[in-house]
């Protein structure tokens, strides 16, 4: 529960940045902006121990054997920040399924936020909300749509992750059937039933296009404090991703992020 996490938080100040460490997560506050990061490799523990881990310059390459053949490589920087995810199919070859840039000589802890003009045509009514009346096809068809307005360029993962105006270029499905107890990220049986529909919808998208990346976003209401909300929303989004993976969605096709009480 979030109370247990809160009790184990440690706070540091470092050159104008506040760094908050808690189990599994680091939260940084700088120039009025707050970012949460978690261990991007944690969900790959499902594959068992890595078959190799090596340092290459400023990068750490961790490789897992995937059940059913092939390999997954996760490349991070020395602080554990995700740089690339690479899939090596059993038949040979290599696909970079996530490229998070970070190769230029710049940046401290802050990702570059991209601000695009708001989208006039996108209103809340266009959000597809999961409920009992929906079929899996409703979601897979929402996910198969392209950006709501044309894009001039493509971006690094963290730009997409931390830029609301970029994310809003792609339509989201809201999981209306999922509820959490206050301060908790546990899921109950009713949640699991609702998630099996989501898993089959993602499965059908991946069946046609296996390298698609889905962002699982956690959001909370305004009550409570900002840091608790960030942590809680990230843990809930991760819990959803874990269940989807138990239901057959490869963990490397998912990216998880909690946004706390900021507006989705």
């Amino acid at each position: 529960r979030i109370e247990d996490v809160r009790a184990r938080r440690q706070r540091f100040e470092e050159a104008g940045t506040t760094i908050i460490r808690e189990p599994g997560r680091v939260i940084t506050q700088e120039r009025g902006q707050t970012f949460l990061r978690h261990d991007e490799n944690a969900r790959f523990a499902r594959f068992g121990a890595p078959i190799s881990q090596e340092r290459r310059g400023g990068e750490i390459w961790t490789t897992w054997a995937r059940p059913g053949g092939g390999q997954l490589v996760s490349v991070t920087d020395l602080d554990g920040r995700l740089l690339r995810r690479i899939r090596r199919p059993a038949g040979g070859g290599e696909h970079v399924i996530v490229d998070n840039g970070w190769r230029r000589p710049r940046h401290g802890v802050r990702p570059v936020i991209v601000i695009l003009p708001p989208i006039e045509m996108l209103n809340p009514g266009e959000l597809t909300i999961l409920n009992d009346g929906h079929e899996a096809e409703t979601f897979s068809s929402t996910w198969s749509l392209g950006p709501v307005v044309p894009l001039d360029q493509v971006y690094e993962l963290d730009q997409v992750r931390f830029s609301p105006s970029l994310r809003s270029r792609m339509r989201a499905v809201e999981l209306g059937g999922i509820s959490f107890d206050t301060g908790s990220w546990a899921l109950d049986q009713a949640d699991l039933n609702a998630l099996s529909l989501v898993a089959s919808a993602i499965q059908s998208v991946l069946g046609a296009s296996p390298n698609e990346i889905f962002l699982v976003e956690g959001h909370t209401g305004r009550g409570g404090n900002e840091i608790d909300n960030l942590s809680l929303s990230d843990r809930r989004a991760e819990a959803i991703a874990e269940v989807l993976t138990q239901m057959g969605i490869p963990p490397e096709n998912l990216v998880v992020q909690g946004y706390g009480d900021t507006v989705p």
Partner: peptide, 14 residues
């Protein structure tokens, strides 16, 4: 409100 959203983001990514 507590919400979970899932978005396919591949078209935005390099």
């Amino acid at each position: 409100d507590d919400r979970i959203l899932i978005r396919r983001i591949t078209p935005l990514l390099a």
